[in-house]
Design a protein around this nucleic acid. Sequence first.
DNA 1: AAACAATTCATTATTTATAGTGATTTCAAA
DNA 2: TTTGAAATCACTATAAATAATGAATTGTTT
Lengths: 201, 201
Amino acid sequence: MNNNKHSHIIILEPSLIIAEGLVYLINKQSKSFEFSIINSLEKIDLITTRKKTELIIINPSYIQNNTKSFNNIKNDYHQIKWIGLIYAYFEQELLDKLDDIITISDTIEVIYGKINKLLNQENTCNKTNSPEILSDREIDVLKLLAVGLTNKEIADKLTISIHTVISHRKNISQKTGIKSVSGLTIYAVLQKIISTDSLSL
Amino acid sequence: MNNNKHSHIIILEPSLIIAEGLVYLINKQSKSFEFSIINSLEKIDLITTRKKTELIIINPSYIQNNTKSFNNIKNDYHQIKWIGLIYAYFEQELLDKLDDIITISDTIEVIYGKINKLLNQENTCNKTNSPEILSDREIDVLKLLAVGLTNKEIADKLTISIHTVISHRKNISQKTGIKSVSGLTIYAVLQKIISTDSLSL
DNA sequence: AAACAATTCATTATTTATAGTGATTTCAAA
DNA sequence: TTTGAAATCACTATAAATAATGAATTGTTT
């Protein structure tokens, strides 16, 4: 168990609902943490200069568009542990950059356990087995396909032409050997490219 | 503005983080609400018998697999308003059953505004399109659809005409509120109508 | 007997998806 | 520097799915 008084945790999460809910629940488990809720990677610097931060709980979307900044911060502050807070689908490659992952469906016990585990360990790198057959863009397309969008809708969403979407789908089907939408959907679920959390339970 | 003291709100959301975060933020705006956080449709009955509920904030996944229960509750308690709390993709048909929608990215001002708007209006009924469980034949069709067969192939397999298959599919989509093949596939998986083993790779 | 749900089949018009074949640009690895 | 993968876009022709309406038959249930 973590005995440090007032370990400092930064929460980087766009939804205030989620951020405050997390703070509330962790506080209910233990008063030994101090929190800063922020909404951009850049603000990490401001906070860490004033206060030693031990853990950052981050919505991976902040990394998605700022991989460079993220890597810089990670290099600057080796001691900081990173936990991904996820409630949508993210590429496995993205999640691999983090030390651990929690989801909004996790019980507070699980979350609290993971936090303490990270704060009390020196180093544990995790590597995962991602098939990596599909390219980034193909995964983008597959994600949208698997939630029911048509080619046209996917094109609009990704701001590319429908021809490109069709092209990607051709490649996806070739690479995976799966032609049907239903097959690709199940593939996406099994590969954790999409989540059924939203539908289950 | 809502002047009722202690309006009662039920929150039906699997993620405690989100539920508690929502309560925290709404409370910060106004102390005039009382909350019950629950995790199944069935518990609505228990609570509403003891306390008059005016609003239910619900994660639509609870409806997806229990459309029947949902409709029953909606019929039993006409006065209750429903707000969907979404952070994943849901079919529009599903969301149409609700009076309004908030997302976890919404600011508390937006959320608070929507709650008050609903609580202060007398009636804005939106009709429900009575969905029921699928018939035997519809399940036959869904099974084959969910493993990737085309309508024509399904027709051949069931030795019926393609018109009949299309007819069944129309009914399936109406009953479930799910139009896309991928959505129906996930539905079939979650309903254990098919197993992911059949297509695993 | 009347009402109803389930199953079956049909037509027409329109929208989407698929198959096949190219092509250009960019960027990283050999 | 050549090679190749990734991402982008295009054209043609065909196949498949959907929407809107309609209807006949067989069973149950009331």
